[in-house]
């Protein structure tokens, strides 16, 4: 009886908390380009954004494409290599359904693989923009935080988990002449 009432109270509280959070979204700080953002797992510094038709490899694509390319610096702060950046750095405005970005390593002018811990790298993330839609003069990039859990709730396994956004960055888009 008591357990039942307790459970009911708990679900009521959690439901109203969810409602409250949905009604009052936490304010995400706006960060300037060039400023380092600490996501927990990564240090991310967004640099510039531009539109282009050729990927950083310099090899022209087989069919004409419009690419939105964002240059950034990252440092992996965790103890294991990782390459899941597309969940940390996302394009939030304009709201546009885009395929997953491709990540290029500046050093090689080639596709990036894993980012090793404590090894700063400059990269370019390239989103393919839909044909016929013009790229705006300004884009907003959202950087999502991650936290480390020593034991998760299912297996008690350690791992990194996505959290709320920690920063948004407005980048003016340079257009090729």
């Amino acid at each position: 009886m008591i357990a039942g009432l307790g459970g009911l109270a708990a679900s009521a509280i959690s439901f109203s908390m969810t409602l409250y959070e949905a009604a009052h979204p936490p304010k995400v700080p706006v960060v300037q380009a060039g400023q380092q953002i600490d996501t927990g797992r990564w240090f991310v510094t967004l640099r510039t954004a531009r539109v282009g038709t050729v990927t950083p490899t310099g090899v022209p694509p087989s069919r004409p494409v419009q690419l939105l390319m964002v240059d950034l610096d990252v440092v992996n702060r965790s103890a294991t290599p990782n390459n899941v950046l597309y969940r940390t750095v996302t394009l939030s405005a304009p709201a546009q359904k885009l395929p997953m970005p491709t990540v290029y390593l500046d050093r090689d002018k080639y596709l990036a693989g894993y980012f090793n811990p404590n090894m700063p790298e400059r990269l370019t993330m390239a989103w393919e923009w839909p044909a016929g839609v013009s790229v705006p003069d300004k884009v907003t990039i959202t950087v999502t935080g991650q936290i480390y859990k020593l034991r998760d709730n299912l297996y008690g396994a350690s791992g990194w988990y996505d959290r709320d956004p920690v920063a948004t960055v407005d980048l003016p888009v340079e257009k090729a002449l």
Binding site: A79, T80, P81, L105, D108, Y110, G113, Y114, N116, P117, N118
Partner: peptide, 10 residues
């Protein structure tokens, strides 16, 4: 210090 680095993919 216990930090892991994988074989390079470059």
């Amino acid at each position: 210090s216990g930090i892991r680095y994988v074989l390079t993919g470059r």
